[in-house]
Computed example of a mutant assay.
Amino acid sequence: MKNPIHELERSDCLSLLENNFMGRLGFIADNTPFILPTTYYYDADDDCILCYSSEGSKLDAMRKNNRVSFQVDDIKSIKEWQSVLLFGEFNELIAFEAKINLQKFVEGVQDTISKIQAKSPKFINDFMFRMSQEQMPIVYKIQLKNVTGKFRTS
């Protein structure tokens, strides 16, 4: 019997990243693996994942061990899906670089959602408000080191 699961080409992996905005972030905290869903934007120009967070245990863990993983799926059925897994390095952005990349994140997520759902998301205004506050969220990127993917078609 022929194996129905195949490797995705790198270009297909990057396409899946570009055309989604929700993924799962994997990191190690206190020698324990964690996986959390998060909103992201794939910045093709810098070959990285952009995210933001408020202070907390997730950021503390990634500051201690900057090696992380990130997964994005497109699941249509049990017999038709694509999945991308990437390994990279967490880099916290500060000052002007953080503001520029938060703006890039906001615009990128908005464009991706608009493309997928053919409507403009309403929560984007919340991000714009956060950018104008003194207590801006922590912006970080995951610099891609290795990308792999699989797919199955019926």
Rank of each mutant, 00 (worst) to 15 (best):
60 D>G: 04
60 D>V: 06
61 A>L: 04
61 A>Y: 01
61 A>T: 02
61 A>Q: 03
62 M>V: 01
62 M>R: 02
63 R>K: 10
63 R>F: 01
63 R>E: 09
63 R>P: 01
64 K>H: 01
64 K>A: 05
64 K>Y: 00
64 K>N: 03
64 K>F: 02
65 N>H: 08
65 N>P: 00
65 N>I: 00
65 N>Q: 04
67 R>S: 11
67 R>G: 05
68 V>N: 00
68 V>I: 11
68 V>E: 03
68 V>P: 00
70 F>A: 06
70 F>K: 02
70 F>Y: 08
70 F>N: 02
71 Q>R: 06
71 Q>M: 11
71 Q>Y: 01
72 V>H: 07
72 V>G: 10
73 D>E: 09
73 D>C: 05
73 D>H: 04
74 D>P: 03
74 D>T: 10
75 I>T: 09
76 K>H: 12
77 S>T: 10
77 S>D: 11
78 I>D: 12
78 I>P: 05
78 I>V: 09
79 K>R: 12
79 K>T: 14
79 K>N: 14
80 E>T: 11
81 W>Q: 09
81 W>G: 10
82 Q>H: 09
82 Q>F: 09
82 Q>E: 10
82 Q>Y: 08
82 Q>L: 13
83 S>Y: 04
83 S>L: 00
83 S>M: 03
83 S>D: 02
83 S>F: 05
83 S>T: 12
84 V>P: 09
84 V>I: 04
85 L>W: 09
85 L>R: 05
86 L>Q: 08
86 L>W: 00
86 L>I: 14
86 L>K: 07
87 F>R: 06
87 F>G: 07
87 F>C: 04
88 G>F: 01
88 G>P: 02
89 E>I: 07
89 E>C: 06
89 E>L: 10
90 F>Y: 15
90 F>G: 06
90 F>N: 07
91 N>R: 15
91 N>K: 15
91 N>G: 12
91 N>A: 15
92 E>D: 08
92 E>I: 03
93 L>H: 07
93 L>Q: 05
93 L>V: 04
94 I>A: 13
94 I>Q: 15
95 A>V: 05
95 A>H: 14
95 A>P: 08
95 A>N: 15
95 A>K: 15
96 F>K: 14
96 F>M: 11
97 E>A: 13
97 E>R: 13
97 E>G: 04
97 E>T: 08
98 A>P: 10
98 A>R: 12
98 A>I: 07
99 K>Y: 10
99 K>F: 09
99 K>Q: 14
100 I>F: 13
100 I>T: 13
100 I>D: 15
100 I>A: 14
100 I>N: 13
101 N>P: 12
101 N>S: 14
101 N>K: 15
102 L>V: 03
102 L>S: 08
102 L>P: 06
102 L>K: 11
102 L>C: 05
103 Q>F: 13
103 Q>H: 13
103 Q>L: 14
103 Q>C: 12
104 K>F: 07
104 K>Q: 13
104 K>H: 11
